[in-house]
Every structure is written in C-alpha cells, then in structure tokens.
Amino acid sequence: MAIHRHPAHAELTATTDAPDRLDLAREVREGLNKTPKRISSRFFYDAEGSRLFAEIMHVPEYYLTRSEYEILDTHKADLLHCFSHDGKPFELIELGAGDGLKTKVLLEYFGAQNASFTYAPVDISADALRELTTDIQSQWPQLTVNPQHAEYLTAIAQLSQRRADESSRLVVLFLGSNIGNFAPAEAVDFFRTISEALRPGDLMLTGFDLQKHPAVIHAAYNDRQGLTRAFNLNLLRRINRELGANFNLSAFDHYETYSPETGEARSYLVSQKKQTVTIEDLQQTVSFEAGEVIHTEISRKFTRPDIEHLARQSGFALTKWFTDCKHYFADVLFRKVGNVNYA
C-alpha cells in the first residue's frame, strides 16, 4: 500500500469549539426563550444519539444511507481517478464522519489500488470518533488516521494550514446530505467558508438528498421501529443529564413534516400537555402549552439547479454528478476555483 503509516495510537485532536456542555447550556437558554422554541440538531450526537443514528441508517424507510452507499461503491474507481489523476497525494477529510460506514468502501478500494493518501475524520462526537479511529486502524493498520474532534470549519482551516505535504490536494467529504441541515443562506456561507480555506484544485464531494415523492421522504423520518422518535427525544434526555433538567420524555412526542413546495423536512418535539420544566443548572423555568413545539431539525431536499446555484455562489465548479439507480440521492464533486466573483 502507498497509504501513509500512522503512529501506534492516533491521537484525538480536539479544538476549543467542539460543542460541549457550555455550548449546550447557551443553546438551551437562548433557544427555549425563542418563539417558536428551538434547539440545534448539532446537539443530537451524544453517545446515545450517535448509537441511535447508526441504527436509523439501517431501517428500511431510511433510503439515504443505502442510496449513497450504492453511489460510492459503484463509482469508487471514478472517484479515485478524480482525486489523484495527476499523481498528487491527497488528504481525505471527512466532515461528520460518524461510524464511517460508507467511507470504508472508499478506504478499502483506495488502499487496494496503492493510492497515496491520509484520512482525517472530523466529528463533534468524541465517542463516535474514538470508535471509528480504533475500527479503521484495526482494519487498515498502515493508514495514517488524523481524527479531529472539532466543528467542521475549524478543522478544515487547521488542516489546510498544516498540510502534510505542500504539494498534496485536500479532498473534503461532506456526505449523508448533512448540507440539508442548513438554511439556504447558511449553506452558501458554509460552502463559501470551506472554499476560502482551500486552494485552487482542492476538491469537495458532497451528498445531496434529491427531491422526490413526498411519501418516500416522510417515511424516512417516521420509521415504524420508532428509532427516529427515540433519536429526537434523546435530545431532552441529554439536557436532563448534562444540565439538570426534569423533562418528562413521555410528555413529549416526535413529529415530522415535509413540504414539497419548499423541499424542507422539519422535525419537532411536541408537548403533549400544558407543563413546566425546570433546568436547574441554568436556573431557568420553561413553560409549555399543550401542542407547543420545539423545532429540532431541518433537512432540505435539493434539485440540480439548487446545487448549481450553491456552487456558483461559493467559489466551486461542479465537476461530476453521481446518482443512485433510483435518482433519490446525488454525490456531487466540486473543485475549488480561483479569482471568484460572488456577484
């Protein structure tokens, strides 16, 4: 293998802006004072949340993982050619690596082809990151793994500044349609910030859940096993544990809605009765009316014009478009371009 060796135990690199208890406290204090109430989906992923999401990816209704897995498996040779066609080594940086299920398809193939690359998984869940790093090092002991416990943009900036090889190319993976968790203007800002941290010729492969029949999308967030419901409610359990709150989980329910007009799926926690919750560590009391909601997640679905617009507004050129056989999902390869005019 031409992949680079790692130390016997890869060290988990943490940055000060990885979400922690103080971030959660700030989010809860501010978010539960808003109308409507809201808590960011980035706080879903404690150890239990990460475990539940790993299970969700395997339920029949949740097509996203299967669709993207199919794309990566079918087009792994094409992707390697795009990443290393000129013989340059590349650094594979995965934002929101999770359990690495889909990425392992690429790691295995790239290693078998003697590709010269390193792998830097980035995640806000330290537990998930440790498990992934241990798993990868056991399967591919010669692969350099540089795990980053950090917010995505911080990790990108730091990894770009300290490239292992000045001639190497950065290849950013942002899979799983995580971009759908951003509002349109936020998505442009996020892409633009990544673009500005990269050099011309660097690449980004991003997953997009495409617009399709609303029933297919709605079912994906309302699985019959109730795992998505448990995943959403676990956010309240985390607040109870970390901030001394007394949310009664049985007094809240999971609710999902999808609008084919806006292409937005939205997740809520619904108060099933009039109630008051105390958050001891914040010295905060929060009142809920029956039927009142906490907005916890947005998941946008895209059209090709949406994605082309995002590229134009953020300093990327769309170079490759890969879809699954049902055209439910797309993995899109972008190349950083120079001399960008955002007007």
Rank of each mutant, 00 (worst) to 15 (best):
T134A: 15
E289G: 00
A10N: 10
T35K: 15
G111A: 14
A54H: 01
K212Y: 01
L153A: 11
F208M: 11
L318N: 09
L333W: 08
E131S: 13
T278M: 12
N232G: 11
G226Y: 11
K273V: 06
A230D: 14
G49S: 10
R5Y: 11
A317N: 14
T103E: 01
K76P: 04
H327S: 13
H213K: 14
L80Y: 04
A150S: 15
V270R: 15
E256L: 07
E70Y: 05
L203W: 10
E280M: 01
T154K: 05
D46H: 10
K104Q: 14
R38G: 00
N146Y: 09
E108K: 15
R130I: 08
Y258I: 02
F252N: 08
T193H: 09
E11N: 08
Q284A: 09
P214E: 14
L95S: 04
D46G: 08
E61V: 00
S195W: 00
K212Q: 13
S84F: 03
A150Q: 04
E27M: 06
E108M: 09
A77R: 07
V171P: 01
R130V: 06
S314M: 05
G291P: 15
T35S: 14
R229W: 01
V105G: 02
E308D: 12
H309A: 12
V188M: 11
T262A: 10
A311F: 07
A18G: 13
Q225H: 04
T257Q: 14
H85M: 10
K88G: 03
L80S: 01
K37T: 01
E308G: 06
T193W: 00
S267M: 15
S160M: 13
E108Y: 12
A18H: 07
T15G: 01
P184M: 14
V286L: 10
I194H: 06
K88E: 13
V337Q: 12
S125K: 11
